[in-house]
Amino acid sequence: MIRLLCALPVMLGVGCGGALPPPPPPAAPVLAVERVDPGATQVTSEIGGLNEDAMARAFQSLDGPIQGCFDEATVRNPSLGGRFTMKMRIAPDGRLKWVYLSEADLGDRKLERCVLDQAREKAWPKPLGGDGLAERGYEIDTRSPAKELTEKWVKPAVAKARTNALKCRNGLHGRLRATAYIAPNGKVLGASITPPDERFEEVADCVAEAIEQVRFGKVGRRMKLSFEIFW
């Protein structure tokens, strides 16, 4: 079952659970300035407002397709569940500039791709006065919870996963949170990362595949493991 945690069209500086600013007047929209660091250079862009009701309806229309993604994924792994936040940036014409999952612990990149593809296929409400930022939080109930595996019990395998992931770096720097499901025989059932920002979406597939290549040894039952990767 999917539970909605929060849904916010945001101006810069407003987070989940915070108070929403009043919508800007059409004739003179109030703009904030966002500074995005893509590496060596810095980009400054104007952030506009989004209609709260329109965004709520747009997000609600995703609930069925996202449920379908999870129904399909739990055939592979009935233990799948957890939390994630979908973050996006919407261009003035309603087109998505980017979307990624933050604060996620799903442990299945195929599932993440399915969820993100649903968002990319939509036409979103047009922001007023520039690009719009929005986010929505979800919590997914698991049908068959996996036991948490502590990193200290599988240190050699985690070290191998970190080494494997280095090939995916592609000039990016940051801290990633990896989540993986381990089968009783030590095979990785699925893996994913929580990226620090949208730029890491382009390497998420590579990192997940790098982790899935590692054998963790017999763990006795289905386990869920989280560990950090520093680049």
Rank of each mutant, 00 (worst) to 15 (best):
L5F: 08
G17K: 03
M55H: 08
G49R: 01
E112L: 12
A134S: 09
I229C: 02
A178E: 06
G220S: 11
A27G: 02
V188A: 11
F216P: 06
L166K: 15
G186Y: 10
S192Y: 01
V115W: 04
C206S: 10
P22G: 05
E209F: 06
E148L: 11
N77V: 06
D141C: 01
E148A: 10
A7H: 02
L225C: 06
V33K: 12
S102Y: 05
P9V: 03
G48N: 01
A73Y: 08
R89K: 13
R162T: 06
V99A: 14
G217Q: 01
V219R: 09
V154E: 02
R221F: 11
A119K: 02
D71L: 11
R215F: 11
K218G: 10
F230W: 11
E209H: 10
P156H: 03
L4N: 07
L116T: 02
M11F: 10
A28L: 11
K122R: 15
V188W: 04
P38A: 09
F59W: 13
I182Y: 08
V99Y: 07
K167P: 00
T194K: 08
G49M: 02
D131C: 02
C168A: 13
N185T: 12
D108T: 04
A32T: 15
A191I: 03
V33E: 15
L128C: 00
E103L: 08
P24H: 08
K187F: 04
R95H: 08
G39L: 12
D63T: 10
P25V: 05
L225V: 07
T179E: 04
L5G: 15
R57K: 12
A119L: 09
V75I: 15
T41D: 14
Q60L: 11
S144H: 10
R169E: 11
V30W: 00
A159W: 01
I211V: 15
E139R: 09
A32G: 14
N164W: 13
K126D: 00
P184R: 09
P26F: 10
R95K: 10
A56M: 13
D105K: 05
T41F: 13
K126Q: 15
E135L: 13
V214N: 02
V99H: 08
L31Q: 12
D105R: 06
L176D: 13
R222W: 07
L149V: 02
K97E: 15
L101G: 02
V36T: 11
L172E: 09
S79L: 05
D71T: 12
A208L: 06
K152P: 00
G130L: 00
R222I: 14
A180K: 07
N164R: 12
A210I: 01
G129F: 00
E228Y: 09
R175D: 14
N77C: 12
M1T: 13
T163N: 09
R3V: 09
K155S: 13
A210M: 01
P65Q: 07
V219H: 03
